[in-house]
Computed example of a mutant assay.
Amino acid sequence: MGIVIKDLTKKYGNQLALNKVSFSIEQGEVVGLLGPNGAGKSTLMKSITNAIIPDNGEILVNNSSVNTNPIETKSQIGFLQENNPLYMDMYVKEYLEFVMNIRGEKKQRVAEVIAEVGLTPEQHKKINQLSKGYKQRVGLAQAILSKPEILILDEPTNGLDPNQIIEIRELIREIGKNTTIILSTHIMQEVEALCSRVILLNKGEIVADQPIEEFKGQYQNLEDAFQALTK
Rank of each mutant, 00 (worst) to 15 (best):
V4N: 07
I5K: 04
D7P: 14
D7I: 15
K11C: 02
Y12Q: 05
N19F: 13
K20H: 13
V21M: 07
S22I: 09
I25Y: 02
G28M: 06
E29N: 10
V30A: 00
V31A: 11
V31I: 15
L33I: 15
G40E: 04
T43N: 00
L44N: 03
L44H: 01
M45F: 04
M45C: 02
S47M: 15
N50Q: 10
N50C: 02
A51W: 07
I52E: 01
E58F: 02
I59F: 08
L60N: 04
V61M: 10
N62M: 14
V66F: 04
T68G: 10
N69Y: 11
P70E: 08
K74N: 13
Q76S: 05
I77H: 11
N84W: 01
P85D: 02
P85G: 01
Y87Q: 04
M88D: 09
M88V: 06
D89K: 10
M90G: 08
M90Q: 13
V92P: 01
V92D: 05
K93M: 09
E97M: 14
E97W: 02
I102C: 02
E112S: 14
V113Q: 01
I114C: 12
T120H: 14
P121E: 06
I127W: 12
Q129H: 11
Y134N: 15
R137K: 11
V138D: 06
A141P: 09
Q142N: 05
I144R: 10
S146Y: 03
K147S: 14
P148H: 14
D154N: 02
D154E: 08
E155W: 01
E155F: 04
T157V: 13
N158G: 08
N158V: 04
L160W: 09
D161G: 03
D161A: 03
P162C: 10
I165Q: 04
I166G: 08
E167F: 09
E170F: 12
I172V: 07
R173H: 10
K177S: 04
I181S: 00
S184P: 11
I187A: 09
M188S: 03
M188G: 04
V191N: 05
E192M: 05
A193E: 12
V198C: 01
V198G: 02
K203C: 00
D209G: 03
Q210F: 10
Q210K: 12
E214C: 06
E214V: 13
F215R: 12
Q218Y: 12
Y219M: 08
N221A: 09
N221V: 08
N221S: 09
L222S: 12
D224T: 12
A225F: 11
Q227D: 08
A228K: 13
T230Y: 05
